[in-house]
Structures are given as C-alpha cells and as structure tokens.
Amino acid sequence: MAHLPYVEYDQADQVTKQIYDKTEARFQMVLNIFKITGHAPEMAEKMWEIFFDILQEGDLSWYEKELLILKSTKMGDCFYCVTQHEAVSARLGVSPEKQADIVGVVYRTSPHYEANEVAMLDLCSHIVLNPEGIPKETWAAVKQFYNDAQIVEIVATIGAYLQVSKFGDALGVELEEVWAGHEPVLFNAEPPNSKAAQGHFDHFVSQTPNA
C-alpha cells in the first residue's frame, strides 16, 4: 500500500482533473503515480508537463528515450518504472532480447545495439553514478551522433526519470492491477541491488497468476 492515499477522479480539484484527462488521453489510463500527486495540483501540473514532453517524438526519438528510461530506472531499481516502460518500449519496437541486454554493460557487445545507442547508454550510466566524472571519451562518442538539442534531451530524460522514480518509490506507489501477469524482463535478467526492491519484485511475481 502506498504511504499516502491516491486522489481519485471524483475527489480531485479542477486542475487535477485536467491532468487526469490529459493522462487518460495519452496513456489510456490514469496511473497511480499521477493519482498520488493530486494532493498538490499546482506542483503536479508543472511536474507532469516534463513527462508529457518526454514521452513523444522530440529532437530525440521516443524509441531512444525509452532506452534511456529503461537504463536509468533499472539502475535505480525502480520496479514500477521499469515495468511500465518495458511495455511502452515494446510498443515502440524494442524487443525483449534488446530490453534484457540493457542491463550492466551487456549492451556494449550486444548485437541488438547500434553504436549511437551504446554511446548514449554509456553516458546514462555515468550520469546516474557520477555526473561530475563523465570521461571526455564518453562525451566525444555521444557528440559523434547527437547535436546539442539531442544531448539536452538525453540528459533531461535521464534526470527526469531519476526524479520520478525516486519520487514514486519513496512514496511506495504500487503497480496498477492491469500489470498482473506481466512477465518482467530486466529484473529477470539482473536482480535488483536493493533488498527492498527485491522484496517488491518477489511480491509482484508471487501475485502473478500461475506463479
């Protein structure tokens, strides 16, 4: 159970209802992570705009952004985000084999990854671990493939998903019932480092029909 109650549509104020309507139109449902922000609509309105901007084609393709989201949220052991984006990225054409190879540094030698994607994912790992220690070779590799507007979008996508994953995990936001039966890819390929995240993962798998 989440640590704060979700704000349902009929309990929401006008600003929150507009956010929920926009969410429903974009994602076909109002996720729990949106519902918990209904307690502070003025903050939620601005916060979610970042994610509405990211989750679409931009200067960077949505497909590439999904790879960054999977990588950054997996590194943060966010089971909620990883599960959501295993599904979104699959819809955009990321195969389960490619998803699984994103863990650790497997992507570097995986036949599923192009050189530009490897450069981008290397940068992602450095930003998550130590943004002040990004080697010049990593930047040089990224700049071979991406211009300034795309680099901004790469860095912003990683930062934003670190933000929302910690935001949701700290509040204990739960996966929606619709995910029952989902076969996890990334966490099966590489278990979480966090004991608490492992607990969430084990609980989810134990709830899966026929588990």
């Binding site: 922000t37 307690h39 903050m43 998550v128 860095v155 990683i158 930062g159 670190l162 910690k166 935001f167």
Partner: peptide, 24 residues
Amino acid sequence: YGQLIEINAVITTFLMIGRVGDAL
C-alpha cells in the same frame, strides 16, 4: 498530504536539477 507531496517533489526535483546541471 499536500505538504508531503511538495516535500518529496522538492527533494527529487533537485536530485534531477543537480544531475542535469552537473552533467552539462
């Protein structure tokens, strides 16, 4: 509840801003 959402948002937003600013 509203204050706790704001507190959690400020913490995680500046985790993001710090990462973005330092990386760039």
